[in-house]
Amino acid sequence: MIVKDWCSFCGECAGVCPRNLIQVKEYSLVFDESECRECSTCVDACPINALEKED
């Protein structure tokens, strides 16, 4: 996952991750990529399109 500069750290992505892999910590997102199944739920949930899937 790529987090863009304009991420507001609102936590919407963390709230919808079915595997609970995302945490908001002091103006950053902590993301466990090793367990991600690339379902894009977090990307779709972002209200300001600040997340993107890596190719």
Rank of each mutant, 00 (worst) to 15 (best):
residue 29 L to D: 02
residue 27 Y to K: 09
residue 5 D to C: 05
residue 7 C to E: 04
residue 3 V to T: 13
residue 26 E to N: 12
residue 16 V to S: 01
residue 17 C to N: 06
residue 42 C to Q: 03
residue 25 K to Y: 14
residue 15 G to R: 05
residue 49 N to Q: 10
residue 43 V to I: 05
residue 47 P to R: 02
residue 31 F to Y: 11
residue 8 S to L: 09
residue 22 I to K: 01
residue 16 V to A: 02
residue 15 G to F: 03
residue 30 V to R: 11
residue 8 S to F: 11
residue 19 R to L: 13
residue 1 M to R: 05
residue 25 K to V: 13
residue 40 S to T: 12
residue 33 E to F: 15
residue 6 W to A: 02
residue 24 V to A: 02
residue 19 R to Q: 14
residue 49 N to C: 09
residue 10 C to N: 06
residue 29 L to W: 08
residue 24 V to I: 07
residue 21 L to F: 06
residue 42 C to Y: 01
residue 19 R to W: 14
residue 14 A to C: 04
residue 23 Q to L: 10
residue 23 Q to P: 08
residue 34 S to F: 15
residue 8 S to E: 11
residue 50 A to T: 05
residue 6 W to L: 01
residue 54 E to Y: 10
residue 39 C to Q: 01
residue 21 L to T: 05
residue 1 M to F: 14
residue 37 R to M: 13
residue 6 W to H: 08
residue 27 Y to A: 12
residue 2 I to H: 10
residue 10 C to V: 07
residue 4 K to G: 06
residue 41 T to S: 04
residue 32 D to E: 14
residue 37 R to P: 06
residue 53 K to D: 12
residue 4 K to W: 10
residue 52 E to L: 03
residue 14 A to I: 07
residue 11 G to T: 03
residue 39 C to W: 04
residue 19 R to P: 13
residue 48 I to Y: 05
residue 37 R to F: 15
residue 34 S to H: 15
residue 17 C to V: 08
residue 7 C to F: 03
residue 53 K to P: 11
residue 15 G to L: 01
residue 40 S to Q: 07
residue 49 N to M: 09
residue 27 Y to E: 12
residue 55 D to L: 06
residue 2 I to N: 15
residue 47 P to L: 01
residue 13 C to Y: 07
residue 11 G to I: 02
residue 34 S to C: 10
residue 22 I to P: 05
residue 2 I to F: 13
residue 29 L to R: 00
residue 48 I to E: 03
residue 35 E to Y: 15
residue 52 E to D: 06
residue 37 R to C: 07
residue 28 S to N: 08
residue 43 V to M: 00
residue 53 K to L: 08
residue 28 S to F: 12
residue 28 S to Y: 11
residue 44 D to R: 01
residue 32 D to F: 14
residue 52 E to K: 00
residue 49 N to D: 12
residue 4 K to Y: 13
residue 8 S to I: 14
residue 9 F to A: 04
residue 32 D to A: 14
residue 8 S to D: 14
residue 32 D to M: 13
residue 45 A to S: 05
residue 30 V to N: 13
residue 4 K to F: 10
residue 26 E to S: 14
residue 34 S to M: 08
residue 28 S to A: 07
residue 43 V to E: 00
residue 44 D to P: 08
residue 14 A to Q: 04
residue 43 V to N: 00
residue 14 A to R: 01
residue 33 E to S: 11
residue 50 A to I: 01
residue 42 C to R: 00
residue 38 E to N: 08
residue 28 S to V: 10
residue 14 A to Y: 05
residue 48 I to L: 01
residue 30 V to D: 15
residue 51 L to V: 01
residue 21 L to Y: 09
residue 35 E to R: 15
residue 3 V to A: 04
residue 44 D to S: 05
residue 40 S to Y: 06
residue 40 S to C: 07
residue 13 C to G: 03
residue 30 V to L: 13
residue 29 L to Q: 02
residue 37 R to K: 09
residue 44 D to G: 04
residue 20 N to Q: 11
residue 45 A to H: 06
residue 32 D to S: 13
residue 36 C to I: 08
residue 36 C to T: 04
residue 40 S to H: 08
residue 51 L to Y: 02
residue 10 C to P: 06
residue 17 C to P: 06
residue 48 I to N: 03
residue 27 Y to S: 12
